[in-house]
C-alpha cells in the first residue's frame, strides 16, 4: 500500500509551502512567543505561586499546551482553504490512499509544531524557564505535547472539512479551543473558580496535559488543584486516555468526511 508514502507527499507539499512563503513560519512562531513574554511580564509579577523559580515555571507548560491545542485551528483553516480551491476534489480524483491527504496534513501541522515549540522553549529559557527533570523527561514532555497537538489536529480536520468558509473555520476553532485553554489550570489555579467550573476545569484535557507536563518538567506544585481529585492525581494517565479517545473518535470520522467532501 502507498498509504504512508502518499501521506508524506502531502506533508512535503505543506513543508514546501513554508519554504516558499517563510512568513508563514515566522507568524506561527511570533504569536506564541508574544504570549510567553506577555504572560511572563504582565501577570508574572502579580501572581504569587510559591513556586521556586517563579510563575514562569508554571506558565511555560500552560502556554505550550495552549499552543499545541491551537494546532486544530491551523489544520482546519488549511483544509477549508484547500476545499474551497477545489484541491480536495482534485486529490480525491487521484488513485491515492483514502486517508493520505488528511494524514499528510496532520503530520505537516505536527512538524510545524516542532519548530514552534523549539522557538517557545528557547524564549522561555531566556526569560527564566528552567525545567529541572533531566534530558529524558524533558524530551518526553515535548513528545507528549506533539502527540497532543497531533490528536487535536484531527478535530481540526473534521471542522475544516465541515465548514464552507475559511473565516468560519477560524471562528469555529477559536470558539472550540479558547474556552478550553482558559477553563483550565494553564494560567491560574483552578481552586479559585466557582465549584462547578472547578470541576470542569480539572477534568478538562488541557488541564491534565498541563499538569502532566509540569510533572515531566520536574515541578511538584499542582498550582492549586483540588487535592486528591482523580485527574489532578493522575494527569499523565488521564492525558493519555484523552488522546486515545480523541484519535479513536476523530480519525475515522475525519477520514470518512474527507472521502465524501466536495467543494462548493
Amino acid at each position: 500500500m502507498h498509504a504512508i508514502s502518499d501521506a508524506l507527499i502531502i506533508t512535503k507539499r505543506q513543508l514546501l509551502q513554508l519554504a516558499r512563503v517563510p512568513e508563514l513560519i515566522l507568524f506561527s512562531i511570533i504569536q506564541p512567543i508574544m504570549f510567553v513574554l506577555l504572560f511572563r511580564y504582565v501577570f508574572g509579577g502579580s501572581i504569587d505561586t510559591g513556586q521556586p523559580g517563579g510563575y514562569v515555571q508554571l506558565l511555560m507548560p500552560g502556554i505550550f499546551v495552549q499552543t499545541v491545542a491551537f494546532t486544530l485551528a491551523g489544520t482546519a483553516v488549511g483544509l477549508t482553504a484547500d476545499m474551497q480551491k477545489g484541491l480536495i476534489a482534485r486529490f480525491r480524483s487521484l488513485p491515492i490512499s483514502r486517508s493520505a491527504v488528511v494524514f499528510g496534513r496532520t503530520l505537516g501541522d505536527g512538524a510545524l509544531n516542532i519548530v514552534v515549540l523549539t522557538a517557545m522553549g528557547l524564549t522561555g529559557y531566556v526569560v527564566g524557564w528552567r525545567p529541572s527533570s533531566g534530558f529524558l523527561n524533558i524530551t518526553l514532555g515535548f513528545v507528549f505535547l506533539l502527540v497532543f497537538g497531533f490528536a487535536m489536529s484531527w478535530i481540526g480536520v473534521l471542522i475544516g472539512l465541515s465548514v464552507r468558509e475559511e473565516r468560519v473555520a477560524t471562528n469555529a476553532t477559536f470558539i472550540a479551543v479558547f474556552p478550553l485553554t482558559f477553563l483550565s489550570n494553564a494560567f491560574a489555579p483552578t481552586t479559585g473558580m466557582p465549584k462547578p467550573l472547578q470541576y470542569i476545569a480539572e477534568w478538562n484535557p488541557v488541564s491534565t496535559m498541563v499538569a502532566g507536563c509540569r510533572q515531566l518538567f520536574g515541578l511538584e506544585n499542582q498550582f492549586g488543584a483540588t487535592a486528591g481529585s482523580f485527574p489532578s492525581e493522575n494527569p499523565l494517565t488521564m492525558s493519555i486516555v484523552y488522546m486515545i479517545i480523541i484519535m479513536a473518535v476523530f480519525i475515522p470520522l475525519s477520514v470518512r468526511k474527507y472521502n465524501r467532501a466536495v467543494n462548493k
Binding site: I9, L16, Q17, G86, L87, A89, F91, L94, P95
Partner: peptide, 25 residues
Amino acid sequence: LSGQYAAVDETLTGWDNLIMFGRLY
C-alpha cells in the same frame, strides 16, 4: 480530471505542483 475552476496549489510553483501530482500518481 480538470475541474471547472483550476485546482492547483497557489502557493507552490508550477514545477512543484507537477512533481507533487506526479508523485501522487
